[in-house]
């Protein structure tokens, strides 16, 4: 049995709480309006479009599950899903390890800390147009830096972004370079670890490894978790690198999910099918995030747990 009061929670509150709730909604109203205008409406429209055949310049025609059937038979869809998964598997763990490593180094008491931090942050701020030209030369089989260095020690380097088998690993390597934002977040996490914990380990005679293993890592696990989720989301949507550097090639070896989606929308002008792809990706990301959230209980250490 429920009456109208219990079904509409806000009416169920005492006046003070009701006022607080009103202030809450008033204060988040800019975000709520933005949400409806720039996210909910576009999402709803694209959800509708995902059930239509919608070519640019024409009216959408509802085709029911037609797009989803097409998706199952679409070689490029499966290919791009595979490429993206491989990319995620390669880039996210690497990025995490490198970012933690750099953050640990930068958290030390070092001279000229501003200088060092700025240098490590640099690769993340160079604009995409310039970065594309840069990597062209780093990975150029003939003139490139990597192969020149390899040749100096007598190894014939591969074709990197121009070789079907090496293009994706090249993109993964690239992603390891631009970890500036993650480093900053880890650094903040490390700085927030109470010094007493380290002192405790030191009193017990623990060395630097013990400090890392038994204090830094557990205390950092919520930050790792946070970065992991953001990293997963970003890696699943990887677009800039394959777009400006390889355009999906050679032979579709770097055709990532987003690139495939983008091509469907803006090369073929097939907005209906692109919307379907987008929604499928959204569901995949949501599902994976949920999985990671579930697993977090096993390895993420929360301060509040000890209370």
């Amino acid at each position: 049995m429920s009456n109208i009061r219990t079904r509409i929670p806000i009416l169920n509150l005492n006046p003070r709480a009701r006022r607080e709730a009103l202030v809450f909604y008033l204060m988040i109203s800019p975000w709520l309006i933005g949400l409806v205008l720039f996210i909910v409406y576009p999402m709803a429209r694209s959800l509708y479009l995902s059930f239509t055949r919608y070519q640019i310049g024409h009216e959408p025609i509802v085709t029911g599950l037609g797009n989803f059937n097409r998706l199952l038979e679409d070689g490029d869809f499966w290919r791009s899903l595979r490429v993206t998964l491989l990319y995620v598997l390669g880039s996210v763990p690497g990025q995490t390890a490198i970012a933690i490593g750099i953050a640990l180094l930068l958290a030390q008491k070092i001279r000229g800390v501003n200088f060092w931090r700025t240098i490590y942050f640099l690769p993340s701020v160079v604009s995409a147009v310039a970065i594309a030209v840069l990597w062209f030369y780093v990975f150029n089989p003939q003139y490139g830096l990597v192969n020149t260095l390899l040749a100096a020690i007598g190894i014939k380097g591969p074709g990197w972004v121009f070789d079907e088998n090496w293009a994706l690993p090249s993109l993964i390597l690239m992603s390891w370079w631009t970890v500036g934002a993650q480093v900053v977040i880890y650094l903040a996490g490390i700085k927030a670890i109470p010094q007493v914990l380290y002192e405790a380990v030191e009193i017990d005679g623990g060395g630097s490894w013990a400090r890392f293993r038994h204090v830094t890592l557990p205390m950092l696990s919520p930050v790792i978790f946070f970065n992991l989720i953001l990293g997963l989301i970003n890696a699943f949507q990887v677009f800039d690198g394959p777009m400006v550097l390889t355009n999906g090639g050679p032979n579709k070896a770097t055709l990532t999910y987003m690139l495939n989606l983008y091509k469907q929308a803006f090369d073929f002008g097939n907005l209906g099918y692109a919307s379907t792809l987008a929604w499928v990706l959204f569901l995949i990301i949501m599902g994976l995030t949920a999985l990671v959230l579930r697993s977090s209980a096993l390895w993420v250490y929360y301060e509040s747990e000890q209370r």
Binding site: F136, N140, P141, Q142, Y143, G159, F162, D163
Partner: peptide
């Protein structure tokens, strides 16, 4: 071979 030619802007023109 394709792998040898780098996809330089301007293609093989520099070579």
């Amino acid at each position: 071979s394709t792998n040898w030619i780098s996809a330089l802007p301007g293609g093989v023109m520099p070579l």
